[in-house]
């Protein structure tokens, strides 16, 4: 799993997505091919740093072993100001989370490959104000 994590480090540590030069649609995670333009499209990488709003969320109570220590944690769909939607954890008290809540990206740990394994970092979100 090590090379698999490493390969996407750039896009996990930063919100780097892709933009189709033909139709200007933004994508996160980045895509190799624009599903709207297909061969007519051409993708370029783009930093998508933006605040966003929670459009849906859930508080997870039962999960796989990898996330047991994080329970209860929040998974949300976040719509950035540029329109891109991201699935991410939101770090806040579960009683605070609301649809429409303004959030901003932060750098956090997502997990690790055991106590002696590599650490998986990535982007989460926290309340913006």
């Amino acid at each position: 799993m090590l090379p698999r994590f490493w390969r996407k480090i750039k896009y996990r540590y930063n919100l780097i997505g892709s933009k189709c030069k033909n139709c200007e649609t933004l994508y996160y995670p980045p895509r190799n091919i624009c599903p709207k333009c297909r061969r007519r499209g051409e993708m370029e990488e783009l930093e998508l740093w933006d605040e966003g709003r929670v459009i849906s969320y859930t508080i997870v109570h039962e999960t796989s072993d990898d996330f047991k220590l994080n329970v209860p944690y929040i998974i949300a769909l976040i719509k950035l100001e540029n329109g891109v939607i991201i699935t991410s954890q939101v770090v806040c008290n579960p009683s605070e989370i609301k649809i429409g809540m303004k959030v901003k990206p932060v750098f956090r740990k997502y997990g690790e490959d055991g106590e002696d394994g590599v650490i998986y970092y990535g982007t989460k979100f926290v309340p913006a104000d």
Partner: peptide, 24 residues
């Protein structure tokens, strides 16, 4: 797996996101 599983989105969590939006 890469963009949902990685962040801890289990299958129930994803259906919960759907349910929450449907309810809303």
């Amino acid at each position: 797996r890469e963009w949902e599983g990685f962040v801890g989105a289990t299958l129930p969590a994803l259906y919960a996101l759907i349910a929450k939006m449907h309810m809303e």
